[in-house]
């Protein structure tokens, strides 16, 4: 299974951990993985992304991924932590690709200052019109239900998992959580991962 995944959002939203969990699941299956992400000034409230590429293993040992960067039109999945950021990354999506997006906007300070906050509904409507495989997650009720605002990343991962868009099984993702996250947070993260499945999509 070769897979290209983009995680995107605003600095500080936890895209990196989600990326790390998918990588761990791929590593556990012995698949080659490459990724690239935003580090530095943009982390202070700017748009951030993580490109993640999982390759195939060939019998002759040859590779099929050379660059961690995904080309336009090559992403199988975009995991968007913010509606406008999903639209920003849309050109990367394959025709057959899926977007899993949080419906909660993060308004830039500049928008608040000028009194012209952007309307997230315009972004979600645009996605609905252009993306055949779209999953919008109502993140307010999800975090309320799960009981923590810190696990948006696992809620979105869980939605991608439930849609069959991740390429891993629930057990493989649970194992990645066990391997990469301290034990005291396991239950909370499992709950977040299962949330979307449990509400029946």
């Amino acid at each position: 299974m070769s897979k290209n995944i983009i995680l995107c959002g605003v600095g500080g939203q936890g895209t990196v951990l989600a990326s790390r969990l998918i990588s761990a699941a791929a590593m556990a299956k012995g698949l080659p993985v490459m990724s690239a992400e935003t580090i530095g000034m943009a982390q202070r409230g700017g748009s951030v992304f993580s490109h993640l590429r999982i390759g195939d293993v060939h019998e002759d040992g040859s590779k099929d991924i050379f660059s961690p960067m995904i080309a336009l039109g090559e992403a199988d999945l975009i995991l968007a932590f913010e509606p406008a950021e999903a639209v920003r990354m849309l050109l990367y999506l394959k025709d057959s690709g899926r977007i899993v997006v949080s419906n909660r906007p993060i308004q830039p300070v500049t928008a608040t200052l000028s009194g012209s906050s952007y309307d997230p509904q315009i972004m979600l409507d645009y996605l609905k019109a252009h993306v055949p495989y779209l999953t919008i997650v109502d993140i307010e009720s999800a975090t309320r239900e799960v009981g923590s605002s810190k696990v948006v990343n696992l809620i979105l991962l869980g939605a991608a998992l439930a849609e069959g868009a991740l390429g891993f099984t629930r057990d493989e993702m649970r194992q990645a959580i066990i391997d990469k996250i301290p034990a005291k947070f396991h239950e909370l993260n499992f709950k977040a991962l299962d949330y979307y499945q449990n509400i029946g999509g």
Partner: peptide, 18 residues
């Protein structure tokens, strides 16, 4: 090349002090 999409205006996010 893919037909370019006519994206809606996107919010600009300059980095800011936390």
């Amino acid at each position: 090349t893919k037909e370019p999409l006519d994206l809606p205006p996107l919010p600009v996010r300059p980095p800011v002090l936390c």
